[in-house]
């Protein structure tokens, strides 16, 4: 597993669950192998191997306790329960900010929200409560969480040359949210079986989700399926193009990242969680082909790009 430079930033719910119990080795289990995750969950969160999760899940916990991860996750996956999705994302985003706070530069944060919100408006989910932030880290990376939370590190932001590149990077993250990539990992797992049995139960509010997710943002260091990354690249490029930007901002950033020495620690986590930048560039090249030959030239807007002091 160490050799494959697979994918992404992004938080996977499963991983979140795993982080509750502080699984020792980051890559000790496959994302899709929920059996492992379930085994490592404390009894008061989910009772493994039982079909009657509801009763037993609540039995050991003081106070409110009908914590059923499967139900919450399934709810978040349903079209009509954006609230659960946003609450899950809020918890994860808050955990990430606990590790890396926002850069103290109000103009910068305002600017990325302007660009990000405009790009997100071109997506199928323009009405999510989209929030964007530049976080205080010199690593080169970007993150997203369900419900419309998108982050870019200061280290990656500094690599950018113009607004179209920022639009492309944010577009990639927006695509993960739009496609519910993090949440959908759950669907491929056995969790869905548990969830189906738990369907119909009431899940109430933020407290439940806080208990469910707990602290830690370790999931940010998990990789998604590499096809999810390639899809996010394709969609990110298109979203930036729809927004009127030069469509080639994202591939330009991929090239730039590809020029960073592979041993540089600033890209260690990114390279671990994503396909290699040159592979992503090649996949974009294949996908685009001659499809954009007739697209009017977009704008790079280097002149109004906000430079971090």
């Amino acid at each position: 597993m160490s050799g494959d430079k697979v994918m992404t930033m992004k938080m996977i719910l499963i991983a979140v669950l795993a982080s509750v119990t502080a699984v020792p080795a980051a890559n000790a289990f496959d994302l899709n192998d929920l059996n492992n995750v379930i085994k490592q969950l404390p009894a008061n969160v989910v009772n493994q191997n039982t079909t009657n999760t509801t009763d037993k899940a609540g039995s050991n916990n003081a106070g409110d306790t009908k914590i059923d991860p499967a139900t919450v996750l399934l709810g978040a996956l349903k079209q009509n329960s954006v609230d659960d999705e946003v609450q899950i994302g809020r918890q994860l985003a808050g955990n990430l900010l606990g590790a890396s706070p926002l850069v103290k530069d109000a103009r910068l944060q305002h600017y990325v929200n302007e660009v990000g919100r405009w790009v997100a408006l071109q997506s199928e989910r323009p009405d999510l409560p989209w929030q964007f932030g530049v976080i205080e880290s010199n690593d080169i990376n970007a993150f997203s969480a369900p419900g419309g939370y998108v982050f870019i590190t200061k280290g990656l932001y500094r690599k950018l040359n113009n607004e179209s590149e920022l639009a492309g990077v944010l577009g990639h993250e927006i695509a993960h949210v739009v496609r519910k990539h993090q949440l959908k990992i759950m669907q491929q797992s056995q969790f869905i079986g548990l969830g189906a049995q738990a369907l119909g139960r009431e899940v109430n509010g933020q407290q439940t989700i806080q208990n469910l997710i707990g602290s830690g943002a370790e999931i940010m260091s998990r990789k998604l399926d590499k096809n999810a990354e390639f899809e996010a690249d394709r969609m990110g490029l298109v979203l930036a193009a729809r927004a009127g930007y030069d469509a080639y901002g994202l591939p330009a950033v991929l090239e730039e990242i590809g020029h960073v020495a592979p041993g540089d620690s600033s890209v260690a986590l990114l390279f671990k969680t994503h396909p290699a930048p040159d592979v992503r560039f090649s996949m974009l090249s294949e996908a685009v082909g001659d499809r954009l030959d007739n697209l009017p030239p977009g704008k790079e807007l280097a002149n109004r790009f906000y430079h971090i002091k």
Partner: peptide
Amino acid sequence: EEDLKAAHFS
């Protein structure tokens, strides 16, 4: 990864 794992909600 260690930073992320140790993160607390802000």
